[in-house]
Design a protein around this nucleic acid. Structure first.
Lengths: 335, 335
DNA sequence: TGACAGTGTTAAAGCGTTTTGAAACTAATT
DNA sequence: AATTAGTTTCAAAACGCTTTAACACTGTCA
């Protein structure tokens, strides 16, 4: 892990000339099988990745598929809005936005490592932060610019935007207590994530202070399937009729909770109060008695974009950091 | 519009050397104001845009902000799912995904032109297609690879993936007719878009055949604000109590229609049937009587990715084209 | 022996940009 | 007249890659 390996590196190591290396890796017909094998081996060992600017400059091929996406017709779309608001924050700057989705089961380090090693971006933005997130550690160690959606344990040292989920849970518990609710169920995000831990902690502290009971599901979290959550909620309210409140960590959890309790004949707002958090307002269209806290995703994206640029331009400056404090419950009129 | 302008072009035109041009445009202090003005003028006239590969190769700066986005926790997110499924279709290929959001009021040609002129991608994917979409015309004329989400009038000549909105409207009308409904309101997408025209046309033909009345809103379309749609629906059902069916062109329209009719005391599934189209199943969680047709966004994204790559690799081959036929109405169990 | 054809490798050039360091002036100072 | 200083411009090099054309070899055939 010294210098970024190029064709020249492999040429030096193998004693061949640069073009030979290029053609060998490109599997050209006029290179002997021996040479190809030898060069391929060295390339793999030192982790050679072609420099995309070099390829592009020479061949004119970018290896980029560009997605030009209009946003006009989708208002209710959290992630899309996050993406477009990052785009919006990048407007009139020299920066372009590159998307690397990754999927459940993928190694979260992989795309980050690729970007750093290949130098395919000046900065990274990512989400789903763990308390001791290895991506954060990796990027900090290499002094590669980044901004996170959510805080790690080292959040004081890097750029982030976060929603205060601790305050959200507190707000929820306090509102439920005020309404005389005493037996609360929380569907929290997977507990490995830092924001889940904060939400749970906030809820527990507030519940203890208010003297009400809070039960947090371990098996079922807000990333379970809708069907699983629905079953679980239905089972819970059926066996324990004292349950009179829900705090839901995601829109999906809210939908599933509502469906589950209604299947058992309970009524939102009357029998059971539901606290929900959403980024794009729409839950109240269907159940105006749901108690909704809004999260400002547009601000999130624009802030993260600015924070990332700042991290690129002023690596030594104090990183941009913002904690969004929930502003209470919204009414349908505000939609 | 002959050759792509570079610093060399400007150098030739101005009689200056390439580095001088570079420094003049970079506003270096050691270039005279006269020269700067002259060069800037030429650059603007010929529409010079710096080649990003050149810049990157020389400086190491990519001018890219990379967004690495986890998708685990958002299931209900149409655009996000489209994006990630495009990413998924690009997996294990050499291609990377680049996002260019644009915003209501922006010139839709601008990002396309930039990509083509700057050569910042090998292919473009875009949506919101007009019947005679200038972007399609532009790209076809230049033989630049692309794939569209939706069909233009020249769809036989280019790669696309489309959902058959004509069939959707027909399906909706026929189902409403079967249920004895006679007075239908449709909230269609803005009529300029091709898919809106197809949806309207399909509805009108089917309504005529079934002998029922179909009214399509002109002023209010599915991109109106939720509040506008809600007001409009409430007003309509209040003044015309014969209305007994809705066909909604978007999830937003559906939500607003439901809210509007319920505000006037009508009940979904009993007084009025509602036909909806959605990509991510969630409407039925709240109103299981809504008649929901699903659109397969995951397939869409993966297909568009493959189609774009195909257009790059085999420009002369017959373009990949797919029309998704709606498969009828879903039940809550299928969610 | 010389010409010919493979075979495997390399030298040289160039894609568009920016950064050095030097060069050509002009104007001011000795 | 000769030096110095200041201003403006430019030549050359380099980033990493691929392509073209040329180079050595070997072995075959006349």
């Amino acid at each position: 892990m010294t210098e970024k390996p190029t064709l020249k590196t492999i040429a030096r190591l193998s004693g061949m000339a640069v073009p030979t290396v290029s053609r060998a890796l490109g599997n050209a017909p006029d290179i002997s099988a021996d040479t190809k094998a030898k060069i391929r081996k060295i390339a793999d060992e030192i982790g050679y990745v072609p420099n995309r600017a070099g390829v592009r400059l020479r061949t004119g091929r970018t290896n980029v598929i560009s997605l030009v996406m209009s946003t006009e017709h989708d208002m209710m779309n959290q992630t899309a809005r996050l993406i477009t608001s990052i785009g919006s924050g990048l407007r009139d700057t020299q920066f372009h936005l590159n998307m690397t989705p990754f999927f459940p089961g993928d190694d979260p380090m992989k795309p980050i490592r690729y970007i750093v090693e290949n130098g395919s971006a000046d900065a990274v933005i990512f989400n789903q932060i763990l308390p001791e997130d290895p991506r954060v550690a990796y990027l900090m160690e290499r002094e590669f610019p980044f901004a996170t959606h959510g805080r790690s344990n080292w959040a004081d040292q890097h750029a982030y935007y976060d929603f205060d989920n601790e305050a959200f849970a507190r707000l929820g518990i306090e509102e439920l207590a005020k309404r005389g609710r005493k037996n609360i169920l929380m569907i929290a995000p997977p507990i490995a994530h830092n924001y889940a831990q904060k939400m749970v902690h906030g809820g527990e502290v507030a519940a203890a202070a208010a003297g009400i009971k809070l039960c947090i599901s371990k098996r079922i979290t807000s990333d379970s399937t809708n069907a699983q959550m629905r079953e679980w909620v239905a089972g819970k309210v059926a066996t324990d009729p004292l349950i009179d409140g829900f705090i839901c960590g995601s829109v999906n959890a809210t939908m599933a909770a509502v469906a589950g309790m209604e299947a058992e004949g309970f009524k939102v707002g009357a029998d059971i109060d539901v606290i929900a958090k959403e980024a794009i307002p729409f839950l109240k269209f269907f159940r105006k008695d749901i108690l909704v806290v809004l999260e400002d995703v547009t601000a999130t994206g624009e802030y993260l974009a600015r924070a990332a640029i700042m991290a690129v331009r002023e690596p030594k400056a104090v990183p941009m950091q913002f904690l969004e404090i929930p502003r209470g419950f919204v009414s349908l009129d505000q939609y």
